[in-house]
Design a protein around this nucleic acid. Structure first.
Lengths: 335, 335
DNA sequence: CTGAAAGCGCTTACAG
DNA sequence: CTGAAAGCGCTTACAG
């Protein structure tokens, strides 16, 4: 591993000059620059990032906070992979790398510590609905951060989310257009942003159409399959069961679909179902799940852009406004 | 951000002593150690990782090479998320972080450069079947690395994979036990390790049962849904169609299932289908896909352990032998 | 058990 | 446009 000193000696300039050709090339003479560049590739010089970070306090690394453990070990993001890819791609374009932060002990300052220790330039956090105080601590600390699906704001913090309320309205509108009056919902957990917002949008949608919402038409699930099955069972047992169900997540919708089918009902003839997310499965499972699609890659791209904007603007500038991604109706067989 | 110097002054010792309480605590007196530790939490001292890396040449970071781009933008790993979680968990236990390497230009030394620039302690690479020369370069360079699903070896390199051949044999054995003689396969791409190995295991399984394999009973897919549909269409057009199909991946199996169903065949009565991977969908899609399950979290855990072993042993020690994870038959409705 | 000092490989005012 | 020099925050022989 050649160092900057060796390279400098190799072409008879000072280390300062070598440093400049890599950082502010416009400031060094054409002739010198080319000589240094040629020598650099010749001897295989590579700047040492740790030394740079030590000198500049910038690491060119973004932390990714993504809690994977204990309290909710079964948690799965509907399209984590797409988010990672989009993030990585967008950040790469600015020379930024993504550091998956190790999940350590349970101290509320663990993420903050990691950020400081590694001189991270910013962080993106993916919500898992656990209301982790360590996540909130980050938002308060004034280090550039953007949250996904979690309405977090702070001195240098913003978030990106789908238009969950609007998407729920799209679902309701579609069902009403199809002639339904008795529409129930299988909601997501009230502690999650998407859970709350989709329920709110659902209520607003019914109200806009002057449709009633009996309390028993709202049953809360946990976004997973079994909760969708249980909820559908409960709905079918009602004295006046709904003719349509909006499930706030596709897995729950699929659970509901299975339960309805097993109960001998035809979907959508006897009961219509609309989901939310547009996971892989939605298109594959017969008869095709009608659902509200999110902008999967938009998440990562928007997050990266917002983060880069904050980093460039500095932490005293006002943070970008939250980004709300539009949803769309993916019309298939169940409604 | 307090520095080691401030902390040292704060408790009247030298910076060397402070450094020792964090790195080799057993070498400093109990009394001094406790004083330093107390002061550290009091003033919120956090060691600067860049400075440590610069001094020690160890970054406590593992690179993750995971090509996401251009040539194969639609590539999806069947259980990337589980692998990441398991990796992260296992590495965390040793204080190691995971750095997602930005995918830059197409130079064959791009990963190697990233490793050197960041002083990475090791790397794990996830195969996407692209035979990337940049990946091979890493294996040759003698930096500790472990490959997933890619039979890569080198001075300090090993790999972990499922027993793909054995899994394919399990599939064949199951079908034969169910009375099938005419068994075809929808293979994975020949350029991928899993594609090749599953086909070899399939052939070996048939041979072991003295069953013939007409050439037209082998059709190659690309692991994705549509290729499974196309393959099944081709198989059904044969003069003597098979009574059972082993698809080397669940998505292809599901495509085959759909095509068979659409053609009016009953599964498994008219044609049996066995997949490979045991993705989420397998259990959810009616009538339940019979498939060969991989040890999803085992991948990440085994990779982390192998990597840590190599790092601790040093690069002159012989690398661990490749790790082959056992598979299991998940028996459901299609066979 | 502890300290003084050199060194890790860069960047960046400050002069010229 | 370029160089000499200080400094970034640690670690680690080397003495004692």
């Amino acid at each position: 591993m050649a160092t900057i000193r060796e390279l400098a000696r190799h072409c008879g300039v000072s280390v300062a000059t070598v440093s400049r050709v890599f950082n502010t090339p416009e400031v060094v003479s054409r002739e010198t620059r080319q000589r240094v560049e040629a020598a650099a590739t010749e001897i295989g010089y590579l700047p040492n990032e740790s030394a740079r970070t030590l000198a500049t306090k910038k690491s060119n690394m973004i932390g990714l906070v993504w809690d994977t453990d204990h309290r909710r070990s079964g948690w799965r993001h509907p399209f984590l992979q797409e988010i990672l890819v989009a993030l990585k791609t967008a950040l790469s374009a600015h020379g930024l790398h993504l550091l998956l932060l190790a999940t350590g002990a349970d101290e509320p300052d663990r993420h903050l510590r990691a950020v400081r220790r590694h001189n991270l330039d910013g962080v993106v956090m993916i919500d898992n609905g656990s209301r982790d105080p360590a996540v909130l601590a980050l938002a308060d600390a004034g280090i550039p951060c953007v949250a996904l699906d979690l309405p977090l704001t702070g001195p240098c913090c913003t978030f990106v989310t789908s238009d969950n309320a609007g998407g729920a309205r799209q679902a309701v509108d579609h069902l009403v257009r199809s002639g339904h009056h008795r529409i129930a919902t299988i909601a997501g957990p009230a502690r999650t942003g998407p859970g709350t917002d989709r329920l709110a949008g659902f209520r607003a949608g019914l109200a806009a159409h002057d449709l009633p919402l009996p309390p028993e038409y709202v049953v809360e699930g946990d976004f997973y399959l079994d909760s969708g099955r249980a909820a559908m069972r409960a709905l079918l047992l009602l004295d006046t069961p709904p003719t349509a169900v909006f499930a706030a997540g596709d897995e729950m919708a699929i659970g509901a679909l299975q339960t309805a089918t097993e109960a001998g009902l035809r979907v959508p003839a006897d009961i219509a179902i609309v989901g939310f997310d547009d996971i892989e499965l939605a298109a594959l499972i017969p008869p095709g799940l009608t659902t509200i699609a999110q902008d999967r890659t938009g998440f990562g791209t928007a997050a990266a852009e917002a983060l880069i904007a904050m980093i460039q603007a500095g932490s005293d500038a006002p943070p970008p406004v939250p980004i709300v991604l539009p949803t769309s109706l993916a019309r298939r067989g169940t409604a």
